[in-house]
Amino acid sequence: MTRPPLAIVAGTGFYDLEALEDRSEETVDTRWGPARVTRGRWHGLPVVFLTRHGPGHTVPPHLVNYRANIRALADLGCEDVVAVNVTGSIDPELAPGDLLCLDDFLDLTRQRPLTFFDGSGPEGVVHVDVGRPYHPELRRELLDAGAAAGHPLRDGGVYAAFEGPRFETAAEIRLARLAGGDVAGMTGVPEVVLAREAGLRYAAVALVVNPCTGVGDADEPITMAEIDAVLARSRDAVLAVLDELVHTRATFTDETDEEDAG
Rank of each mutant, 00 (worst) to 15 (best):
F252K: 15
A170N: 01
V241S: 06
L178R: 15
R166I: 01
P211V: 04
A203L: 03
A240V: 05
E191Q: 11
L245Y: 13
G164M: 04
E226D: 14
A232Y: 02
V208M: 06
A176Y: 08
L231M: 10
V208P: 03
D257N: 15
E258A: 15
D243F: 05
G185D: 06
I222C: 01
A240D: 11
E220W: 01
G185P: 02
D228M: 12
A218E: 03
L245M: 15
R166H: 11
D243R: 08
R174A: 13
P190M: 09
L207H: 03
V215F: 00
D219H: 08
V193S: 04
A184Q: 07
L207G: 04
F167V: 07
A204W: 07
T253A: 15
A179G: 00
T213Q: 02
V241E: 03
D257H: 13
L175G: 09
G185K: 12
V193W: 03
A240L: 03
R249H: 11
V189W: 00
E168I: 07
T223R: 08
A195L: 07
L242F: 10
G180W: 12
E197D: 07
L245A: 13
S234P: 02
L178V: 12
M224A: 06
C212G: 04
D217Q: 05
E226I: 00
I222N: 00
D243E: 11
T213I: 03
C212Q: 09
R177P: 02
A218G: 04
R196V: 14
A195S: 13
A179T: 04
T223Y: 01
M224P: 00
I227C: 05
F167N: 08
G216S: 11
